[in-house]
Amino acid sequence: MDSIKKKRIIELEDNNYCDWKSSLNNKLKINQSNYIELNCKSLYLSCKDISSIIKISKRWNTEIITFISTCPETIVSTRALGYRSEINVKTLSNNSIEKKHKISSNSQPIFHNGTIRSGELIESHGDLLILGDVNPGALVRATGNVMVFGRLLGIAHAGSQGDQNAKISALQLRPVQLRIANKVARGPEEKPQRGLAEQAKIESENIVISLLESL
């Protein structure tokens, strides 16, 4: 077994102008210890990123025992893969809060897995992504976009706080009613073609349904 059982802390660069992967690689190359505590600072790391870090560490025969981060999403990713992690609140900089806010308003949707049945209601401040059907009598509402990976048969309300650019998309768009911002439209009378996803958005003051190119 290895004699050097000392724990070392390695920090990742969290500015956007630096490639953290290559810097981590270099740092591990000159490293003496086999056990590493990795401070990810405010980097937003997905599960994919975490597993590539693990891969790099294995290449240099080291083991990362703990991840430290100020970004909750990174903590979630590491925990999801079964690694120990700690959230570092003290070093939470203004910069990262700003970043986090941007993330939640832009790219972090509320995610629901399962069918939404009559009488049920799901609301989101931001986008709403549903993996399942929205049955007649159910209501889904988001301040951003509504995306349904399934059949949308109930009522959907996108841009509920007045965002005219919000969109509603579904694999099968057969709602009872669609609402975008303050516009209301009844669902289409004729059945849509099978297997073609559709989206609804506001075009010249009306809600228009068209084929979906990309989510």
């Binding site: 009598g137 009872v176 009613q177 209301v184 009844r186 669902g187």
Partner: peptide, 17 residues
């Protein structure tokens, strides 16, 4: 309120705002 259906029987379910 629990199990509403009157709108469906009257054919008005898609006009409710």
């Amino acid at each position: 309120f629990g199990l509403r259906n009157l709108d469906l029987l009257l054919g008005l379910e898609n006009r409710i705002v």
